[in-house]
Amino acid sequence: MTTGVQPVEKYGQLKAVGLLIGGISSFQIGATLAKGLFPLFGPTGMVGLRVCMAALILLAIWRPTRMTLTPAALKLLLPYGASVAVMNFCFYVALVRLPLGIVVALEFTGPLTLALAGSRRWLDLCWVLFVISGLYLLLRPETAAVAGSAHALDIFGVCAALLSGCGWIVYILTGTRMGKILDAGQATTLGMATAGIFLLPCLIPTIPTVITHPWQGGAALSVAVLSSAVPYILDMMAMRRLRPKDLGILLSMEPMLGAVSGWIFLGEALSITRWAGVLCIVVASLGNVLTARKATLH
């Protein structure tokens, strides 16, 4: 009887992998589309449109009338929603100043640092060195082909990307606790709605522009769907079947997918040195995921 179940289970896992990759790809495509709308709405206006529209979509799916908030959930909701707002705001501020692949790689150091924090294994020191090497390769000034001048990344954009990574840390810490109190769909909906309230000052100035440019307003709605609604739904479907280890391995590829998306859709070609920096971040994340389980078994 087990031989009949295993193929079905294996098919379900492969389907979950496809869903998760689809969610990650959808987010990256949404980011490239959002960057194309920056000249009209600006990065702050775009983040206001994206988060507030995504909140409305999620509220339509998981209706607030069905939710019961406990005092413990209310206590976590403010930092949880604030972290969502900070992540998205800083990500878009960085995106207008840096290539997509570099922004994703710098942002990814946040949860990676959280995963490595407090570890005393010598092997984790290797992953820390990979992170440091990756940051060095990404941030070091490069000699331009013309006039031999050194070209450094925009420091404000770098700080914004790293701050987005810090927001991701708070999101993970508060989100995991929220997930134990509320259904995952309800927790994310409330978090996105709270973030939307924080970002209302970014949304309100864009409303006249949306009215006078309905096609671009529709594109902004597409960003909300591609970058929030679709990835969330696909991630939720995938996480029901994937083990945490498999989930971590797939998410580790996000910096590389960001670099590839920026190259294909935005023409943001990175130098070999900065590709190597992105790869170092990916290797550090993969190594941490692949060796973490061994440590718990001993």
Rank of each mutant, 00 (worst) to 15 (best):
S228Q: 03
F130N: 08
G18V: 08
F265P: 05
L286G: 13
V282R: 09
Y136L: 07
A160L: 00
Y171L: 10
P201I: 08
G118R: 05
P208R: 11
G101Q: 10
F89M: 06
E107S: 03
S119P: 07
A150R: 14
L100T: 08
A31V: 04
V47H: 00
G267M: 02
M178N: 13
M236R: 09
M87G: 00
V131M: 15
G45V: 08
Y11C: 12
G167R: 00
V51G: 01
A94C: 02
F41Q: 04
L19F: 05
K35V: 09
I207N: 13
L247V: 12
I155F: 09
P39R: 03
L116H: 10
A160V: 00
A193K: 06
L77C: 08
V158F: 01
C202S: 12
K35T: 10
S26K: 03
A34H: 04
Y80F: 10
L14S: 14
L98S: 02
E142Q: 04
I211K: 14
Y92G: 00
I132K: 07
H298N: 15
L49D: 07
C202M: 12
L242T: 10
G4V: 01
L162T: 02
L266K: 01
G4L: 01
K180R: 15
G196A: 07
T70Q: 13
L270E: 15
A150W: 12
A147T: 13
A105C: 06
L37K: 00
I61A: 06
V223E: 09
A220S: 08
V86W: 02
L100W: 08
S25E: 09
I181W: 02
I197M: 05
V158W: 01
I24V: 15
V158C: 03
M192S: 00
C280Q: 11
I197S: 04
T212H: 11
A259G: 06
